[in-house]
Deep mutational scan, measured.
Amino acid sequence: AELMTLTIVKGAQGFGFTIADSPTGQRVKQILDIQGCPGLCEGDLIVEINQQNVQNLSHTEVVDILKDCPIGSETSLIIHRG
């Protein structure tokens, strides 16, 4: 298992991935745009978004944080894999 830092840019259609609740937090459910989120894999656990720890937040709260990220700006994700 490892922590990885990824930088992704939000496009007009969003980030290009969906998230779902899991017992340990929000996991990447589906990658819709592989080019839009390079390095991200289905099943990755989202630990931080732009230096904000999201592991204890609800699904709705994490979705809102992602929605609030401006289109075209870089967003830093720390994910836990494995």
Rank of each mutant, 00 (worst) to 15 (best):
I19Y: 04
Q55K: 02
Q51W: 07
C41T: 14
G82F: 02
G16H: 10
I8H: 06
I79T: 08
N56L: 09
P38Q: 05
F15H: 12
P23L: 11
S58T: 05
N53L: 08
E42W: 04
S58L: 11
T60P: 03
D21L: 15
N53M: 10
I65H: 02
N53I: 08
R81T: 04
Q30W: 14
I31K: 15
I78R: 14
L40F: 14
T5F: 03
K29W: 12
E2D: 09
L3A: 11
Q35V: 08
V47F: 15
G43E: 14
A12C: 10
Q51K: 11
Q30N: 02
T7D: 04
L66C: 01
T75Y: 04
I71T: 10
S76K: 11
R81N: 04
T75H: 14
V9E: 07
V47W: 07
D33W: 06
K67C: 06
E2G: 09
H59L: 12
S22F: 06
C69W: 02
I19L: 12
Q55H: 00
I34H: 04
L6I: 13
C37E: 13
L45C: 01
Q51T: 13
A12R: 11
N53F: 07
T24N: 12
T18C: 10
P70K: 09
P23F: 06
L66F: 14
F17Y: 02
G14H: 11
G11E: 05
I34V: 13
C69V: 11
L32N: 05
I46L: 15
I49Y: 05
H80P: 01
E42C: 05
D64G: 09
K29Q: 09
G11I: 06
T7S: 06
T7P: 10
I49L: 13
Q51D: 11
D44L: 00
D33M: 05
I8T: 14
V54E: 00
T5M: 14
I34W: 06
E48W: 04
A1G: 06
C41G: 10
R81C: 15
D33I: 02
R27M: 08
T60H: 15
P38E: 06
Q51P: 00
C69Y: 04
L45S: 15
F15S: 04
T75I: 06
L32A: 03
C41S: 14
Q30K: 15
A12D: 11
R27V: 14
H80E: 13
L6E: 03
Q26W: 06
R27T: 13
T60K: 12
G39M: 03
P23A: 07
P23R: 11
G82I: 01
A12F: 08
T5V: 07
I31Q: 07
G16T: 10
T24W: 08
I31D: 02
T75Q: 04
F17P: 00
I71W: 04
Q13S: 11
L40G: 00
I71D: 06
V47G: 04
D21Y: 06
N50R: 08
L3K: 14
T24A: 12
Q13H: 04
I31E: 02
N50Y: 01
V9K: 05
T18P: 00
L6N: 04
E2I: 05
I34D: 10
G16M: 12
L40W: 00
V47M: 09
Q51G: 09
E74P: 15
V28P: 00
V54L: 07
N50H: 13
Q30R: 06
T7Y: 05
G11Q: 05
T18Q: 08
G14A: 04
Q30Y: 08
G11R: 07
S73C: 15
L57N: 15
P70E: 13
P38D: 05
L77D: 00
S76H: 01
D44G: 00
V9T: 12
Q30V: 06
G25V: 01
T7H: 12
L66E: 01
I71R: 07
L3M: 14
P38C: 04
S22K: 14
G39F: 02
N50I: 01
T18S: 12
N50A: 05
I71A: 04
N50G: 09
R81I: 00
I19A: 01
C37D: 09
